[in-house]
Design a protein around this nucleic acid. Sequence first.
DNA 1: TCATGTTACGTACTACGTAAAGATT
DNA 2: AATCTTTACGTAGTACGTAACATGA
Lengths: 296, 296
Amino acid sequence: MDIQQLRYFTAIAKAGSMSRAAEILNISQPALSKVTKLLQEELGVPLIRHVGRQIILTEHGQRLAERSLTLIQDFENLKGEIENRDVSCCKDIKIATFEVFSTYALDFLNHIDWDQKTLTLHEVLPGELEEAVANKKVDVGITYMPVPHPDLEHLKVTSIEMGVFSHPDAFPDLIQNDFPYVVPAMPITGTPSRVRGLDGWPDDVFSRKVKYRVTLLETALELCRQKKAAGFFPAFIVDLHNKNVDKSRRLIRRPGISGCRLVKTDVYIVKRKSDVENQFIKQLAKGIRAVCSPKA
Amino acid sequence: MDIQQLRYFTAIAKAGSMSRAAEILNISQPALSKVTKLLQEELGVPLIRHVGRQIILTEHGQRLAERSLTLIQDFENLKGEIENRDVSCCKDIKIATFEVFSTYALDFLNHIDWDQKTLTLHEVLPGELEEAVANKKVDVGITYMPVPHPDLEHLKVTSIEMGVFSHPDAFPDLIQNDFPYVVPAMPITGTPSRVRGLDGWPDDVFSRKVKYRVTLLETALELCRQKKAAGFFPAFIVDLHNKNVDKSRRLIRRPGISGCRLVKTDVYIVKRKSDVENQFIKQLAKGIRAVCSPKA
DNA sequence: TCATGTTACGTACTACGTAAAGATT
DNA sequence: AATCTTTACGTAGTACGTAACATGA
């Protein structure tokens, strides 16, 4: 038995249903069910009873829920009392990200304890990101295109799957490398039509035709929705995007050629070497993992 | 932060030293050190300070230790209040084991919460063990020589390493299969000198000479100590044995031949199918793993 | 050099996920 | 059929182990 189990159980007691509680707790229903079962086994006492498809608390369950409530309160109070509340922690947290980790992916913020903190978010480009962290303009960065820097370290957080996406009806006759691509508009280092992509496309291995260069991810997606272009995006971004738009505007992955079907890229948190890896960074990492992995 | 971490930290506060606290808590010092570091990171506050090779609590540390104490008390009280205290749980726990899991290996009892319980331990032979569990003469059995039974299930707990052991000076000229073996005295199914061993020796593969048959493990060990015999024992038993006896009487593993050098055998908890796998069984399993694995 | 604490790294357990199968209205 | 829960099983994160290293008496 630990505090977590008590938290879960009181959530069930409050919600009056496992599925609702699981929803509130942001975990899956089976997980919650299992934890509850374990708790009952450990205590050796039934806590909930099933009546039809309702659940009701037994006498023991009611007593546990009641008493847990105050215990959890005490626990949180103690934590709050000791926890560092000085400037360095109550400050305004400043994060620099790729636009990719903004907009659709903002859910990672929900995994962070914002109590006493405020947020500033800067959407920037790869090079700028490292610079901003090094210059202390921001506290941390999130990127999948790391640029090495002597004062910084890149903590690998997870890896994401990249893919070529377009509207299903677009370019039925073309192969992947001949799609008219939309890419991030910026540091162009190649020819006008063959660029080293800022989106992580392996240009050193496969060349592609670039037709559009845009600043905003949303613009790129819109071009794809209009069947004007294809893009090289993280798969989880397109998944999130597809959940937001009308069925007719959803994008699909285009099967690649030349073994380029599935590309995995690492995602990093960028921090100054002089900063310790604190609780906030851990929460941030957890949040990023949760958003990037196709689980929920 | 969870209750466990608070328990660990108060232990440090009470003991005044990490190593002593680790000893009391039955965990390794590095583990405790790490947990403490994590706790400080999470809270963002130093809790202990190193002064020479002493540690002293900071102001925060003192407050946390004090407050934790009552919180832990409350937690335990709540647990105790809900926990099942009726006959079925306050009863006398009856366990049947091989002698192997008795005597030297009794440490597994320390992993069980004996609060409100008493223990009866029966040292029995393989067949008897299953019978005793099935007849409800005992609650569970521990064995590495399972005998299938329709009403019972064998839960695999861990695996142990078996080996041939003798006094280092004994039988320098003989190879393993020609040692005069001491084996458990009982259900003999082979010839007088070639038996199907009750100790798990793979007689179907390798024959051996049996010179002594004894009832008690301790007697077998004594014969080995006197250089009169060799035995096929679980390695962890011999390790524990060697810690208890004088240097001159310690046994060593004899290198085997014919690929029989390292034999692993599974250890099982035997329970009735009709019984649920409760907290007690989990603790028991944990204890057995702790004793059998050469870790501490 | 011993006592004490930390870092590095391996392993095994556990938490939680998805998928699929009961149960109840 | 739709809703709610449990079972089965896979994976990733964490807890704790040992070994090796650092440091003060």
